[in-house]
């Protein structure tokens, strides 16, 4: 990992912790952004952590760009020594895989896909050597995922699969982005999963849909009353495959204001995870399901 700094015009500094994605790069980016927050540097206006990089927006009338750069470089040394452990949440997200809405959408945009003859999920299963749709769902929902970035559009989480790199699902993005994606689509591009928080354009493969809203600008949904965006970097997600009847009942619960996500506080240690991936994941499931 070699940190690279670059100015984004006169108001941003972009810091790439590593060219490639890894949880190590994410944790270093997160500890650096935490350090920036805590050092309360005058003139910093936005602190945006990303997967393996981050961005600081600053006011050059308050702090000169070179001084801002020097501050960040100073903080990098401290971040290297930081403990890779965070207090976070683990959340269960129900997913109706192979749902009719993403299916209808992907059929409309077939000519923009690498393999117009199969669906996104069939294609992803095949190129990842998984046993059809069922095998794909098992691999996708078997281990937890780590929220390594929130953004693109309001409240959209990028998710990183918590398994060995050789078992990580990887798919290309659509050849040309779609102009439409259903709200709450569970998607995937490169090594990242995502949940589309709003309806709109998108280039990720589409695998299913969740009934659980993750962005509510009106703040009417109970668990989004305090803040309209559900996800934060560092959250851990467990997908739960559901059938159509369960999906419909969850949607009815959301509408009636009765839906409450299954969610627990948890501490995640990167060192522990590196030593024993399956053991750490089993422990996380223990916290989530209380056994």
């Amino acid at each position: 990992m070699k940190t690279r700094y670059s100015f984004g015009g006169d108001e941003h500094i972009f810091v790439e912790v590593d060219e490639e994605m890894s949880l190590e790069a994410f944790f270093k980016s997160l500890s650096m952004t935490t350090a920036v927050k805590e050092s309360r540097i005058k003139g910093v206006t936005e602190i945006c952590p990303a997967n393996a990089s981050f961005q600081i927006k600053f006011d050059p009338d308050v702090i000169a760009p070179d001084d801002m750069l020097a501050e960040l470089k100073r903080l990098e040394g401290a971040a290297d020594k930081a403990e890779s452990s965070i207090k976070t949440r683990i959340v269960e997200i129900p997913v109706l895989y192979n749902d009719p809405w993403t299916h209808e959408t992907l059929m409309r945009f077939r000519e923009r896909h690498q393999d117009p003859k199969s669906t996104d999920i069939e294609y992803a299963a095949r190129i990842n050597n998984l046993d059809g749709v069922d095998g794909f769902v098992k691999a996708h929902s078997g281990a937890p995922w780590f929220v390594s970035m929130v953004g693109f559009v309001a409240g959209l989480p990028f998710l990183y699969q918590m398994v060995d790199r050789k078992r990580q699902i990887e798919v290309p993005k659509y050849l040309r982005p779609r102009t439409d994606t259903p709200k709450l689509t569970v998607g995937h591009g490169g090594c990242f999963g995502c949940i589309y928080s709003v309806r709109g354009a998108g280039g990720y493969q589409m695998f299913g849909i969740t009934p659980m809203p993750i962005y509510d600008p009106k703040q009417e949904i109970k668990y989004l009353k305090d803040f309209m965006v559900f996800f934060r970097p560092g959250d851990i997600v467990k997908w739960k495959p559901i059938d159509r009847a369960e999906y419909d009942s969850a949607v009815a619960d959301v509408e009636a204001g009765k839906f409450a996500p299954r969610m627990r506080d948890v501490t995640f240690s990167l060192d522990e995870f590196r030593r024993d991936i399956d053991g750490t994941n089993a422990k996380l499931m223990g916290v989530l399901y209380g056994n």
């Binding site: 790439e16 990303a50 990887e170 591009g189």
Partner: peptide
Amino acid sequence: FGAGSDPSNIVDAC
């Protein structure tokens, strides 16, 4: 790793 196959792709960043 993680960027995607097109030469214009990067690991998703800000």
